[in-house]
């Protein structure tokens, strides 16, 4: 019945190799991104035409691209930019979506219907197209890409938050709080939002890999960051031209890095959701 009655060894969370691997990948990637400018500075505009399309070797672990730039070196900087864009855009989407969902659920009635129709209308448009439109309006830059992703990806978050709040407010424990004299604000901040925040945090975390992919797609289409700046999307875009000349490594390494980091983020986000839910914690004896 109670986890407190279990011996300490049984209360320890079980070792999960997948989670351990995801942690190592993510911590390693973030540490490398943070340390890169100190240990291995990159001149974004430097080219070396004597070393173009060199295959992977000890000197160039992931080879060089068609301008003679080290692919591993640039991938590290590309990941740095992509993670930054992904994280900030996911936070923008979470804040906008969280606010819209909360206002819709708590106000109800006409406000709810109006906001949900706005969500439906925006959702009916292809978000990549909408993102391209926003970038085109603002000119390609880091801020434009962040806004383009953040302002097109809050819809699912708004729906999640609204649905969670609507479901929660019919629960008897909320009735008990109302009967106990809690104000609307107290019910919202003490009993509703704390239950929604783990899901909002999870949605945000899962949004990071999606936003990284979106940034990559925009850069791949030539609408993301300026072409000379290293981002995973720019590199994959540049690398696809090298594929025709047999230089497969120019796209492969940034592509694999993107897949590895996004899978690690998704795995850790799922694990985090489990740890935040008291009932799941009890079942897992955490």
């Amino acid at each position: 019945m109670t986890d407190l009655a279990l011996p300490a060894r049984l209360r320890r969370p079980a070792f999960r190799p997948g989670i351990a691997l995801a942690s190592v990948v993510l911590v390693g990637a973030v540490a490398a991104c943070l340390a890169a400018p100190l240990l291995w500075p990159l001149d974004e505009s430097a080219v070396d035409l004597a070393r173009i399309r060199l295959a992977p070797s000890w000197e160039h672990l992931a080879g060089t691209d068609d301008l003679g730039r080290d692919v591993a070196h640039r991938s590290l900087y590309g990941l740095r930019v992509s993670l930054l864009v992904g994280a900030v855009a996911a936070v923008v989407a979470a804040v906008v979506g969280g606010l819209v969902g909360t206002v819709a659920a708590t106000c109800g009635g006409r406000v709810d219907r109006a906001l949900m129709r706005v969500v439906d209308t925006i959702a009916a448009l292809p978000h990549l197209l909408l993102g391209i439109f926003i970038v085109a309006m603002l000119r390609p830059s880091l801020g434009a890409v962040v806004l383009s992703i953040g302002l097109t990806h809050w819809l699912s978050t708004a729906r999640i938050v609204r649905a969670e709040l609507l479901s929660l407010r019919t629960r008897p424990f909320v009735d008990a709080a109302v009967a106990g004299g809690a104000s609307r604000a107290r019910v919202l901040t003490r009993h509703l939002l704390p239950h929604v925040l783990p899901r909002l945090a999870l949605a945000t975390t899962l949004m990071v890999p999606h936003a990284v992919w979106h940034e990559t797609a925009l850069s791949f289409l030539g609408l993301g960051l300026p072409p000379h700046l290293a981002s995973l999307g720019n590199m994959i875009n540049d690398g696809q031209r090298s594929l025709l000349t047999g230089a497969w490594w120019a796209s492969l390494v940034p592509g694999l890095l993107l897949v590895a980091v996004t899978l690690a983020l998704a795995a850790l986000a799922g694990r985090w959701r489990d740890r935040l839910d008291p009932r799941v914690r009890a079942e897992l004896h955490l």
Binding site: R171, P172, F173, D175, A176, A179, P194, P278, R279
Partner: peptide, 13 residues
């Protein structure tokens, strides 16, 4: 009011 299911009537957090 005292509800039938105490589990549903208490905030699990």
């Amino acid at each position: 009011i005292l509800f039938q299911s105490p589990r549903a009537a208490t905030d699990p957090r």
